[in-house]
Design a protein around this nucleic acid. Sequence first.
DNA 1: GTTCTTGCAAAATATTTGCAAGACG
DNA 2: CGTCTTGCAAATATTTTGCAAGAAC
Lengths: 138, 138
Amino acid sequence: MNNSDIENILTNHGIKPTTNRVLVLKDLQKRTSPVNLADLEMSLDPMDKASIFRVLELFSKNDIVHVIEDGSRSIKYELCNGKEHHSVSDQHAHFYCEKCGSVICLDYVKMPDINIPEQYKVKSVNFMFKGICPNCYK
Amino acid sequence: MNNSDIENILTNHGIKPTTNRVLVLKDLQKRTSPVNLADLEMSLDPMDKASIFRVLELFSKNDIVHVIEDGSRSIKYELCNGKEHHSVSDQHAHFYCEKCGSVICLDYVKMPDINIPEQYKVKSVNFMFKGICPNCYK
DNA sequence: GTTCTTGCAAAATATTTGCAAGACG
DNA sequence: CGTCTTGCAAATATTTTGCAAGAAC
């Protein structure tokens, strides 16, 4: 995906494509599992932490990233599935390994079809499993 | 439930029933939704924050409380269902209101019966919905 | 020149640990 | 005594904000 594709994604979500935003989005596209702010800070060095934070905040508000709370004590971010859509049903479960700290996307574990009463306005869902991953259990 | 019942629960979970532990457990029993450390600190005043923290840590290790990560940026605790059992399947979903910050137990939304591959050792599950609650939406 | 964006520094919030005093047996 | 428990203080870790300089238009 080239830069103008990236810029289009941003524009389509009502976001002006600044340098930082393009770089953050490109970084997120490379990831195969959710990342936290510190990960991105390292990877995007020398971009400022607060700037990255604000980009992520914006992305979240404009439905480009999902916010994942995995119990690792730090918030993780993941591109919305399909890179252009965002809905509760496109979310999947995650597995957090308490030993190595990695997060694994359980893509094949889709959000179950749950009926939350009408009066609740559901904006996002987190479906997290925690324990020991196959790698650490060996 | 009187004090000796409480003490029995602790003893049955391999925990020596000290004053602090009994007080924390009694407090948790009164709750109808998950609480965080600050809540307990206020409610159990003048018990020390670190002491409460350590009690909760112990309770969690010994399967008396579930740890709930609801995306509120603070960890919440909830008594295990039935007060004496602890398993993935006894967990239920929660709803976190982004406006008022309250957590509502969706008791009727049980953990869906999901098959995680054998190699994963699942220790806990979090199934969180976020959005606006009926009260705030009115 | 007005508004938006960014980086630096620091505030705010929460969690977690070190350590010494006290309780318990 | 020796071990476990507790409270105080402080360290950590992370998220979030204030503000001024710079970029964009």
